[in-house]
């Protein structure tokens, strides 16, 4: 492994020191996570109300989803969170050569998640199990389209967050290659880590809420 050059970090001019800068960044990120929770929280409220109003549709709709593929995707996200944590560990231990491989593994796992999601989507679209305006499947419950409206809205917004996370991972890999991260500085890694765990957190609830209804 070629030696990665180490680039020292200097705090921006309006901060007293690097500690203050790091604390400010983490505080900002926690606030951002707070707003993410309320954003997806809106979907949670919607889910609760819709499930109360159309219980049969959720049971029937959930039967159309594959818990195997959903479970596989859960595993992808859980392991990707672990590899991202290991990337930070490597930075803290000054093992610069390991940061990019761990970030790359995280990226590939996120990509696998989206690929599986893509297969699921195309299968549902093929059977006409899509939101109301294009819904064309046969069903026992007349509100079945509401379940698939919820399914596509929630998983679609979540997939968008995964996509954004992948963009952030690429940015981190580019910076890591230039030696930006080491025992003296890992703030961007920590911020993306918090974001990525939030994405994982949301999926943890989406999986039983959509795939495991009976």
């Amino acid at each position: 492994m070629s030696q990665v050059p180490r680039k020292e970090h200097h705090a921006a001019h309006h901060f007293d020191d690097a500690v203050q800068e790091r604390d400010a960044a983490l505080l900002g990120m926690w606030l951002f996570i707070g707003q993410e929770l309320l954003f997806f929280g809106g979907l949670a409220v919607l889910y609760i109300v819709m499930r109360l109003q159309h219980p049969g549709a959720f049971v029937e709709g959930s039967g159309h989803l594959s818990w195997k593929l959903g479970g596989l995707n859960t595993a992808f996200l859980v392991v990707s969170s672990m590899t991202l944590g290991l990337a930070i560990r490597s930075a803290k231990r000054d093992e610069a050569g390991k940061i990019v491989p761990f970030l790359g593994a995280t990226f590939l796992l996120a990509l696998s998640f989206l690929v599986v999601k893509g297969f699921e989507y195309s299968e549902k679209i093929h059977h006409g199990l899509v939101p109301g305006k294009w819904f064309s499947a046969i069903g026992a419950d007349p509100s079945l389209h509401v379940f698939f409206g919820m399914y596509f809205a929630t998983t679609g917004l979540h997939a968008l967050h995964v996509l954004i996370g992948m963009g952030l991972l690429v940015w981190l890999m580019l910076r890591a290659r230039r030696g930006h991260f080491h025992s003296g500085y890992q703030t961007p890694l920590d911020l993306v880590n918090l974001y990525w765990h939030t994405v994982e957190l949301i999926w943890i609830f989406l999986f039983p809420a959509l795939y495991l209804v009976s």
Partner: peptide, 19 residues
């Protein structure tokens, strides 16, 4: 963020008909 999700859902309701 709740306004954001509301407006996203409204747009989706208008375009896809979420129900």
């Amino acid at each position: 963020p709740v306004l954001a999700i509301t407006l996203v859902l409204l747009i989706l309701e208008r375009t896809l008909g979420l129900g």
